[in-house]
Simulated assay, not measured.
Amino acid sequence: MKDKTEKDQAGAIDRITLPLFVPGDRPERFAKAMAAGADAVIVDLEDAVAPDAKERARAGLAEALAPVTGTVPVLVRINARGTPWHAGDLAACAGLPLAGLVLPKAESGADCVAVREETGLSVVALVESARGLRNAEEIAMASRRLAFGSIDFAADLGIAHERDVLLPARFALAMAARLAGQAAPIDGVTTALREEDVIADDCRHAVAMGFGGKLIIHPAQIEAARKGCAPSQGECDWARRVLSAVEGGAAAIAVDGAMVDAPVIARARRILERAAATV
Rank of each mutant, 00 (worst) to 15 (best):
R29A: 14
P27I: 06
E196Q: 15
L173C: 05
A276L: 09
V127R: 01
R204A: 10
A174H: 01
N79H: 04
A268F: 06
E6D: 11
I216N: 04
G70W: 09
S108F: 03
A277L: 13
G181P: 08
P23S: 13
A36W: 09
A94Y: 02
L133S: 02
L65K: 10
G100Y: 01
G249Q: 10
A94V: 03
V49L: 06
A239D: 04
A277T: 01
R58K: 15
R226L: 10
D164A: 11
S143W: 00
A147W: 09
T278Y: 01
A31H: 14
R26Y: 12
A160R: 15
D152M: 08
R170A: 09
W238S: 05
G158S: 13
A177N: 02
R81Q: 12
P263G: 11
T190W: 01
R116P: 00
K2S: 14
T71Y: 00
M34C: 15
V127K: 03
R204W: 03
T190K: 01
A31W: 04
A258T: 14
A125R: 02
Q9S: 04
K7Y: 08
G228A: 02
A87N: 04
G82M: 07
A230Q: 03
R163H: 11
D39R: 14
H86M: 06
L65Y: 01
G109W: 04
Q182R: 09
A174I: 00
G249K: 09
Q221H: 09
L98S: 01
G88C: 07
T190F: 02
S122E: 13
W238Y: 14
A266H: 10
A99Y: 01
V68F: 07
R226C: 11
I151R: 02
I186Y: 05
E118I: 00
A80I: 00
D202S: 13
G120V: 06
V264A: 09
L103N: 03
T69G: 00
L18P: 00
S244C: 06
A200P: 07
A268D: 04
E28A: 13
D197Y: 05
R145G: 02
D197T: 15
H161E: 03
C93Q: 03
G100E: 00
L166K: 00
P27S: 11
L121F: 00
A91I: 11
A192W: 06
G248Q: 09
P27E: 13
G132E: 04
G88K: 11
A80G: 09
G60S: 08
T278V: 08
K7T: 15
C229H: 11
A48W: 05
L126Q: 07
Q182A: 13
D14L: 01
D3H: 13
M209A: 14
A177D: 03
A40N: 02
L98V: 09
D164Y: 05
G24T: 08
D52L: 10
D8L: 15
R116A: 15
D164K: 10
A258M: 10
